[in-house]
Amino acid sequence: MKFLTTNFLKCSVKACDTSNDNFPLQYDGSKCQLVQDESIEFNPEFLLNIIERVDWNAVLSVASDLGNTALPPSKPVFPATADQLSEEDMTILRDLHTLLIQTSISEGEMKCRNCGHVYYIKNSIPNLLLPPHLA
Protein backbone atom coordinates (compact mmCIF):
# COMPACT_ATOMS: atom_id res chain seq x y z
CA MET A 1 0.00 0.00 0.00
CA LYS A 2 1.52 3.28 -1.14
CA PHE A 3 2.11 6.08 1.35
CA LEU A 4 -0.30 8.23 -0.70
CA THR A 5 -3.10 5.76 -0.01
CA THR A 6 -2.79 6.41 3.74
CA ASN A 7 -3.96 9.92 2.85
CA PHE A 8 -7.23 8.58 1.47
CA LEU A 9 -8.17 5.91 4.03
CA LYS A 10 -10.47 6.36 6.98
CA CYS A 11 -12.01 3.77 9.30
CA SER A 12 -14.67 1.60 7.58
CA VAL A 13 -16.95 1.65 10.61
CA LYS A 14 -19.90 3.91 9.75
CA ALA A 15 -20.40 5.03 13.36
CA CYS A 16 -16.91 6.57 13.26
CA ASP A 17 -17.92 8.95 10.46
CA THR A 18 -19.29 11.37 13.05
CA SER A 19 -15.88 11.52 14.74
CA ASN A 20 -12.90 13.57 13.62
CA ASP A 21 -10.61 10.78 14.77
CA ASN A 22 -11.43 8.27 12.02
CA PHE A 23 -8.86 9.83 9.64
CA PRO A 24 -5.99 9.34 9.18
CA LEU A 25 -5.61 5.91 10.67
CA GLN A 26 -2.82 5.44 13.18
CA TYR A 27 0.00 3.33 11.77
CA ASP A 28 2.02 1.10 14.07
CA GLY A 29 5.57 2.07 13.15
CA SER A 30 7.11 -0.92 14.91
CA LYS A 31 5.05 -3.35 12.80
CA CYS A 32 5.08 -1.58 9.44
CA GLN A 33 7.62 -2.74 6.87
CA LEU A 34 8.43 -0.06 4.32
CA VAL A 35 9.67 -0.76 0.81
CA GLN A 36 10.85 1.59 -1.94
CA ASP A 37 10.00 1.03 -5.57
CA GLU A 38 12.35 3.28 -7.49
CA SER A 39 11.13 1.99 -10.82
CA ILE A 40 7.96 4.10 -10.60
CA GLU A 41 8.62 7.00 -12.94
CA PHE A 42 8.52 10.62 -11.81
CA ASN A 43 5.87 12.71 -13.56
CA PRO A 44 5.83 16.26 -12.13
CA GLU A 45 2.70 17.40 -13.94
CA PHE A 46 0.74 14.39 -12.77
CA LEU A 47 2.04 14.76 -9.23
CA LEU A 48 1.08 18.45 -9.09
CA ASN A 49 -2.55 17.53 -9.74
CA ILE A 50 -2.52 14.81 -7.13
CA ILE A 51 -0.87 16.94 -4.44
CA GLU A 52 -3.85 19.28 -4.64
CA ARG A 53 -5.93 16.43 -3.20
CA VAL A 54 -3.53 15.65 -0.39
CA ASP A 55 -4.42 16.44 3.22
CA TRP A 56 -1.05 17.65 4.55
CA ASN A 57 -1.85 17.21 8.23
CA ALA A 58 -2.56 13.56 7.51
CA VAL A 59 0.76 13.26 5.66
CA LEU A 60 2.53 14.65 8.76
CA SER A 61 0.61 12.36 11.09
CA VAL A 62 1.34 9.15 9.15
CA ALA A 63 4.96 10.12 8.44
CA SER A 64 5.44 10.68 12.15
CA ASP A 65 3.83 7.28 12.93
CA LEU A 66 6.40 5.75 10.59
CA GLY A 67 9.32 7.65 12.11
CA ASN A 68 9.72 10.58 9.72
CA THR A 69 9.38 13.94 11.51
CA ALA A 70 11.46 15.96 9.03
CA LEU A 71 8.63 17.16 6.79
CA PRO A 72 7.73 20.86 6.49
CA PRO A 73 4.81 21.85 8.77
CA SER A 74 2.67 23.12 5.90
CA LYS A 75 2.01 21.82 2.40
CA PRO A 76 4.60 23.06 -0.13
CA VAL A 77 3.14 25.57 -2.58
CA PHE A 78 3.79 25.09 -6.29
CA PRO A 79 3.07 27.15 -9.40
CA ALA A 80 -0.11 26.26 -11.24
CA THR A 81 1.53 24.53 -14.21
CA ALA A 82 4.53 22.23 -14.59
CA ASP A 83 6.43 24.52 -17.01
CA GLN A 84 6.66 27.21 -14.31
CA LEU A 85 8.39 24.91 -11.83
CA SER A 86 11.73 26.15 -10.51
CA GLU A 87 14.65 23.86 -9.76
CA GLU A 88 13.87 24.09 -6.08
CA ASP A 89 10.23 23.15 -6.77
CA MET A 90 11.44 20.13 -8.71
CA THR A 91 13.63 19.00 -5.82
CA ILE A 92 10.69 19.18 -3.44
CA LEU A 93 8.43 17.39 -5.92
CA ARG A 94 10.99 14.63 -6.32
CA ASP A 95 11.11 14.19 -2.56
CA LEU A 96 7.32 14.02 -2.46
CA HIS A 97 7.36 11.49 -5.28
CA THR A 98 9.76 9.35 -3.26
CA LEU A 99 7.60 9.61 -0.16
CA LEU A 100 4.05 9.45 -1.55
CA ILE A 101 4.40 7.22 -4.61
CA GLN A 102 7.59 5.17 -4.27
CA THR A 103 7.28 4.32 -0.58
CA SER A 104 4.82 1.65 0.35
CA ILE A 105 3.93 -0.43 3.36
CA SER A 106 4.30 -4.09 2.49
CA GLU A 107 3.27 -5.51 5.86
CA GLY A 108 1.83 -3.71 8.83
CA GLU A 109 -1.14 -2.63 10.82
CA MET A 110 -3.14 0.50 11.51
CA LYS A 111 -5.83 1.44 13.97
CA CYS A 112 -8.81 3.78 14.10
CA ARG A 113 -8.18 6.48 16.71
CA ASN A 114 -11.91 6.55 17.44
CA CYS A 115 -13.09 2.94 17.76
CA GLY A 116 -9.68 1.28 18.07
CA HIS A 117 -10.38 -1.32 15.36
CA VAL A 118 -7.18 -2.71 13.87
CA TYR A 119 -6.66 -3.22 10.12
CA TYR A 120 -3.84 -5.20 8.57
CA ILE A 121 -1.73 -4.76 5.47
CA LYS A 122 -0.65 -8.04 3.93
CA ASN A 123 1.41 -8.43 0.77
CA SER A 124 1.05 -4.66 0.26
CA ILE A 125 -2.76 -4.86 0.20
CA PRO A 126 -4.72 -3.28 3.06
CA ASN A 127 -7.68 -5.27 4.35
CA LEU A 128 -10.50 -2.93 5.39
CA LEU A 129 -13.18 -5.57 5.95
CA LEU A 130 -15.11 -5.56 9.22
CA PRO A 131 -16.45 -8.24 11.56
CA PRO A 132 -20.26 -8.51 11.62
CA HIS A 133 -20.69 -6.61 14.90
CA LEU A 134 -18.98 -3.55 13.35
CA ALA A 135 -20.57 -3.86 9.90
Partner: peptide, 23 residues
Protein backbone atom coordinates in the same frame (compact mmCIF):
# COMPACT_ATOMS: atom_id res chain seq x y z
CA UNK B 1 2.14 2.91 -16.40
CA UNK B 2 2.91 2.06 -12.78
CA UNK B 3 2.82 5.71 -11.70
CA UNK B 4 -0.92 5.75 -12.58
CA UNK B 5 -1.75 2.86 -10.28
CA UNK B 6 -2.36 3.82 -6.68
CA UNK B 7 -3.64 0.70 -4.94
CA UNK B 8 -6.31 -1.92 -4.74
CA UNK B 9 -7.97 -2.36 -1.37
CA UNK B 10 -9.73 -5.37 0.08
CA UNK B 11 -12.88 -3.53 1.03
CA UNK B 12 -16.66 -3.77 0.91
CA UNK B 13 -17.93 -0.91 -1.26
CA UNK B 14 -20.92 -0.48 1.09
CA UNK B 15 -18.54 -0.09 4.04
CA UNK B 16 -16.32 2.38 2.29
CA UNK B 17 -12.97 3.58 3.65
CA UNK B 18 -12.15 6.33 1.16
CA UNK B 19 -12.37 9.53 3.23
CA UNK B 20 -15.63 11.32 2.47
CA UNK B 21 -14.04 14.66 1.45
CA UNK B 22 -11.84 13.05 -1.20
CA UNK B 23 -13.05 14.19 -4.61
Amino acid sequence: ESSKFLDVLTMDFTHNSLRSNLV
